[in-house]
Design a protein around this nucleic acid. Sequence first.
DNA 1: ATGCTTGCAAAACATTTGCACGCAC
DNA 2: GTGCGTGCAAATGTTTTGCAAGCAT
Lengths: 137, 137
Amino acid sequence: MSRRSRQREAIIAVLKSTDIHPDAGWIYEQVRKVIPSISLGTVYRNLKKLKEEGLVREIKVTSGLSRYDMVRESHYHFRCEVCGRVYNLDQSLVDRSVEEVVARKTGFRVTGHDIEFRGICSSCQKIEMKGEKGEQP
Amino acid sequence: MSRRSRQREAIIAVLKSTDIHPDAGWIYEQVRKVIPSISLGTVYRNLKKLKEEGLVREIKVTSGLSRYDMVRESHYHFRCEVCGRVYNLDQSLVDRSVEEVVARKTGFRVTGHDIEFRGICSSCQKIEMKGEKGEQP
DNA sequence: ATGCTTGCAAAACATTTGCACGCAC
DNA sequence: GTGCGTGCAAATGTTTTGCAAGCAT
């Protein structure tokens, strides 16, 4: 398997400590507080390894850079189109049988699926309402 | 609205002619057969515009570069983990009510969703079986 | 001792952008 | 004529990689 290293452990610690789905740069900045000498290349290298080992998942949201998170229970994502935040949603919202439906219809072997919902999160809806004050003269 | 141009029309034509979900480079090569002087920058600029106008959709598959396709009926995607091909799936496979479920549970305004299924497509399953011949000594 | 992992810096890539010119309106 | 779209090339931003040295096994 993989060898241990302070850098690798620190990256895992950072990922475990948050659920904001950070990108590589943010992870780099966090780890730098503990290991100032770490390089961005090392962060990318470790993320790649961790992905291969199945410990970390890379998500590409419709616009923006790659984001990473620890694989806990698998979950869906909701991306706010206003603030760009990515929220977790409980996977149980959707019946797992969708995979069987797809497998039956296509003959493909289905090993997983992800759903990305789009829309406006609650805090941006509030801001939106404030902003609309007086826009109807 | 947008102004017409040979380049723009050619890009649309290429996108209409295929369903392989090409990336910008492939589109560029295709258009070049008709307009050899077109630049990659123009392809990107047009794709961006077409996206804003809602004519084209950009999909980011879990690994690889951005891919583009004309918005016809909306559909899901299946990405083969072996060959990397992206297939279209009929959106009617999954009940649209998932959006309502999410909206009710979160209080977010949900304006859309995408599903990416993963697995092994039928042609890669065949190859896989061939390749396994004799691997069990 | 062996060889995986690191830091550094350069490279590779995808995508965007500034500019002067040309074409659509 | 106005100003949007283009080609070109340079810039930007992200991710990858070659190398020599260091550390885990």
